[in-house]
């Protein structure tokens, strides 16, 4: 549904995107990850037809995103990473403008979304908080029930409750067979919505991987405070990977194999426990480094 074919764009400062090739299949939710400045937004700008590639192309549903940028918008819903609405309007006027430009007669979808996101669309945009503006943007992206959704950092600025609701919206879209590409920093978000994820670094795709496989690769660090010295000894005797010791505090890293860990701990006196999950980007980087080393 979404195809990038050796998409290349070089900026004057030497940065850009270089030979990006990947495909998002119909009905798939694809996560797009990478550090700031890696080229995520540049890629999305090409998908939206805002930029002309130097070579290669981006296609949605077989239509070239640059040459026929107006045509692809019929089936695309877009949520920009930076929220900026035209000045001097309220939310409703803005949404009516977009509906008018899309020639949408029935605003039932739009009304239902406003209802679910719980905001007063009649508020002047300059008086809106960041989260509220984001909601207006979400309505604008979903109002025409598009077959393809392009979402740039969709949950930034939303409170956790609304983040959940947004994930719900993406899952519903997925159920209806929509194709979604979203950039994100949140593992939870990617984990709960995406089938596959790709990471981009310095303008190049470094890995495209099933999210489930990534999840299995995720290292978790357990930060334990134990009751006595002998508890630490029993941890040492096990196969667990201890990465740091500080008095009665021990940090144990693991990747799967939680059963052993629980069995070992069952004989210990644990007074406190914290869990730190590895960030998705780190897993990717780790995975990438390993591939390079093995390669």
């Amino acid at each position: 549904m979404i195809q990038l074919n050796r998409l290349t764009k070089t900026f004057k400062n030497g940065r850009g995107i270089f030979g990006l090739t990947f495909e998002v299949k119909r009905g798939e939710v694809f996560g797009f990850l990478g550090p700031n400045g890696a080229g995520k937004s540049t890629t999305i700008r090409h998908l939206m037809g805002f930029m002309k590639p130097h070579s290669g192309n981006a296609k949605i549903n077989g239509i070239d995103c640059w040459k026929n940028s107006a045509d692809i918008q019929r089936n695309v819903g877009y949520l920009p990473g930076e929220i900026a609405f035209p000045e001097g309007m309220n939310g409703l006027q803005f949404l009516n403008l977009i509906a008018g430009m899309r020639r949408i007669k029935d605003n039932g979808m739009s009304d239902r979304l406003i209802e679910r996101l719980q905001f007063d669309a009649g508020t002047p945009i300059r008086k809106m908080s960041k989260g509220m503006k984001q909601k207006v943007g979400i309505v604008a992206a979903f109002m025409h029930d598009p077959a393809v959704l392009i979402l740039d950092e969709p949950t930034s600025g939303l409170d956790p409750l609304m983040q959940n609701l947004f994930i719900q919206l993406v899952l519903e879209a997925k159920e209806k067979g929509k194709t979604v590409i979203m950039s994100s920093h949140s593992f939870d978000e990617i984990n709960r919505t995406c089938d596959r994820a790709g990471i981009i670094k310095d303008g190049r795709i470094v890995a495209v991987e099933d999210v489930q496989r990534l999840q299995a690769m995720q290292r978790k660090v357990f930060d334990l405070t134990l009751g006595a010295k002998r508890d630490i000894d029993s941890l040492r005797e096990s196969n667990l990977e201890i990465i740091q010791e500080d008095g009665l505090r021990v940090k144990v890293a693991m990747q799967g194999k939680y059963d052993d860990f629980i069995r070992t701990l069952s004989v210990c006196n644990v007074t406190n426990m914290d869990i730190h999950a590895q960030k998705l980007e780190d897993i990717f980087m780790h995975y990438y480094d390993r591939k390079v080393n093995e390669g």
Binding site: M48, S69, Y78, F85, E87, M101
Partner: peptide, 14 residues
């Protein structure tokens, strides 16, 4: 300001 993005994200051509 970036608000042009919303206008161009509709089927109305540039």
């Amino acid at each position: 300001r970036g608000s042009m993005a919303y206008l161009l994200a509709t089927p109305v051509s540039r």
